[in-house]
Design a protein around this nucleic acid. Structure first.
Lengths: 243, 243
DNA sequence: GCAATAGTGTCTGTCAGACAATATAGG
DNA sequence: CCTATATTGTCTGACAGACACTATTGC
């Protein structure tokens, strides 16, 4: 930094304009029993008390956006590391009636067992199945299904959830994000189940197997699944490097 | 809104936390003479005085993010309507040395003649060719080429420019964004030139023609281009509805 | 051996790339 | 007719879907 720049910095007045609050909202996604699922929190306070919302929080003044997402993943969702990706920023003026809040939405992909652990650790979290009226290229509205039908969502969180599903559907067959929804070792059938749940269509087994193996993302472990009363499938692992 | 909610709103204190500034930065893109191009502004003030930056500005407290992008498109880039899409939000803590600024980046796609008009209207704008070290699936770094080599970019605007190119490259062959880079009527050769510039690779002419016509995005006008000393190509138009 | 699923071989339709043939404007 | 490019036809290789076949485990 030059001396001029240092002088300029000293005199700069950052309080000239009224500033919005910036929040991060997290779409926690998994595939459970062959269907896409998400974790929501029930709002106890106004606004939208009684509705369900994405876990979220305000970005601190000295905290990067990505760091805020990971902090909320730990604090609000009781998760350790996970695949986290920025989704979109929502900035309608009236999306929060309290005040101007711009929300940077992220989504996190987690294996089903991590969902179970988080639900046990925090009773405030609710598991919902995501229902999408697929197939339809545009990826229409989604619904978070509770025990007694669709849950009412707070703010614009329904839009965020829908966009997250759309993004995931768009990425899953040309990027290795699907592996983040499975445990370390998994069978090709389990991987196919995940893809079918996300895409909402049944897939051809031999073609799926060929495609996955050709991409070079998979590494055979030589191990077999246990507990089946029929021929056990081989367990594969995600190969991190394209080598 | 219930009475409870109204009461709650009244008592809510929005000034509890220090808030970041939120800005919108615009990547104005076109294809000129067979190469991707962008419009930049030269910074006169600190920080990064003398470097080139994306046109941008702060989001007003009562202005939606998308509206801010369109306002800046008009005010700073002297453009009317255009294809505008949100790109990504950049939120590193130290990306602006003055203060905490979170930038929501947008990109706009414009036909080459609109670029020329904007350059005439505002002498502060600079036209740069975008050089990308392609082909390479990951889409390496980009450089904004001036008369005498690469221009130094301010803040993290090089990252933003690179991500914009990557996004455009990823979308162009499965979405109709390419038409936004051309005038109302255009030849298939011009469309192919745009695709080749964005993708950085030569394309097969018959295959390109077939693919485009099969997608149903194009409408033949029956008119022909003029001014060529050889067989004139038919002019096509973008068909808005998939009908 | 039986049941049930894992894993493989093969055919076929679709589609993009390659390449060549035909069409048409100005001169 | 000549030049240069538009436009079309055809062949071919890559690849996904369909479907049937073989393999392997527990019982």
């Amino acid at each position: 930094m030059t001396q001029d720049e240092a002088l300029f910095l000293k005199d700069y007045d950052p309080s000239a304009y009224e500033r919005p609050s910036v929040a991060v909202d997290l779409v926690l996604m998994s595939v459970i029993d062959g269907a896409p699922a998400a974790l929501l929190v029930r709002r106890d306070e106004h606004p939208h008390a009684g509705r369900w919302a994405l876990p979220g929080g305000f970005v601190r003044i000295d905290e990067a956006l990505d760091d805020a997402a990971r902090r909320i993943l730990g604090q609000k969702a009781h998760m350790g590391d996970a695949y986290v990706e920025q989704l979109y920023s929502f900035g309608a003026v009236d999306r929060d009636p309290r005040m101007r809040v711009i929300s940077v939405a992220y989504f996190a992909l987690l294996p089903a067992d991590r969902f179970a652990a988080a639900l046990k650790a925090d009773r405030g979290l609710t598991l919902t199945r995501i229902a999408v009226d697929w197939p339809g290229e545009t990826g229409g509205p989604v619904a978070a299904m509770g025990e007694d039908g669709p849950l009412p969502l707070a703010f614009d969180h329904g839009d965020i959830l829908g966009l997250a599903m759309l993004r995931l559907r768009g990425k899953i067959d040309y990027s290795p994000v699907g592996f983040a929804l499975l445990p370390d070792r998994f069978t090709l059938r389990a991987l196919q189940d995940v893809h079918e749940a996300i895409l909402g269509v049944p897939l051809n087994k031999p073609a799926f197997r060929r495609r996955m193996l050709d991409k070079g993302w998979l590494e055979a472990t030589g191990e077999r699944e246990t507990g089946s009363s029929f021929r056990p499938a081989e367990l594969f692992r995600f190969k991190p490097r394209t080598a």
